[in-house]
Amino acid sequence: MKNPLAKAGILLVGMYVFLKFILPQFTAPLPASLIFLYLALTFAASTIFFTMSGAGLEDFMGPVGRFLTGEGQSGIAGTARILVFLVFPLLVGWQTYTKLAPSDAPPAENRTIHPAPPGEFVGLANPFPKTQDNIMMGKGLYAAFCSPCHGANFDGKGPAAPGFNPPPANFSDPGTIAQLQEAYLFWRIKKGGVGLPIEGMPWKSAMPRWEFELPDDWIWKIIMGEYDGAHQSPRTWEEEEEE
């Protein structure tokens, strides 16, 4: 395979197959925009590489030039040439259309799920020892006040959950309370959805502002019951120091 143009083509197809089909075997599938970026980079790089020298330029561009001018072409090559000339403007037209066509989708909202808590809630420690009694009481309070949304199994699938947007947090998911300190949960339970900063979109959250109904002691015990029931541990200062 001497022709640099063919080499560049094979490289590009190979790169696409690798990014789209082989890489996802080992990691999460790549978003289209990233695949596009990589393909564009591969294409630009191979074009520059193969056209660095004068001879390379002729090898690379020569066939393209002959293809475009149609010199000495007949049969399939001639048909392909006409197709390329037809497809390119249509592709440009299609791109223009998709960029301009009005979208039926509402504007995307980037809601921050765990925004920073206010200063007064940072570093608070649970004042209750982790005894079986405290955990049991916490679980009882959880069942009464939290389970309708967050679920009896701590999985965010309570009977009231399907109606809300955003959905109630799933505590058994390692991405929720396992990433947070007890003080963070204390803030979120006490101040509720309306306590969120603007990036948390407080206007959408159905989480009650429990400080009006539950004493702090109950909230701390609920937190204890929540971690125990969801089989998660809070993130602590000690762990971070070890890291």
Binding site: K20, I35, M61, L91
Partner: peptide, 27 residues
């Protein structure tokens, strides 16, 4: 002239390449 042709052809190829990779990459 050769250099100009190289640039023009290159632009054309890049336009086609970008269009093609954009269309195969759509989610």
């Amino acid at each position: 002239r050769e250099r100009f042709l190289g640039v023009a052809l290159g632009t054309f190829l890049i336009a086609i390449g970008l269009g093609a990779s954009w269309s195969v990459a759509s989610d």
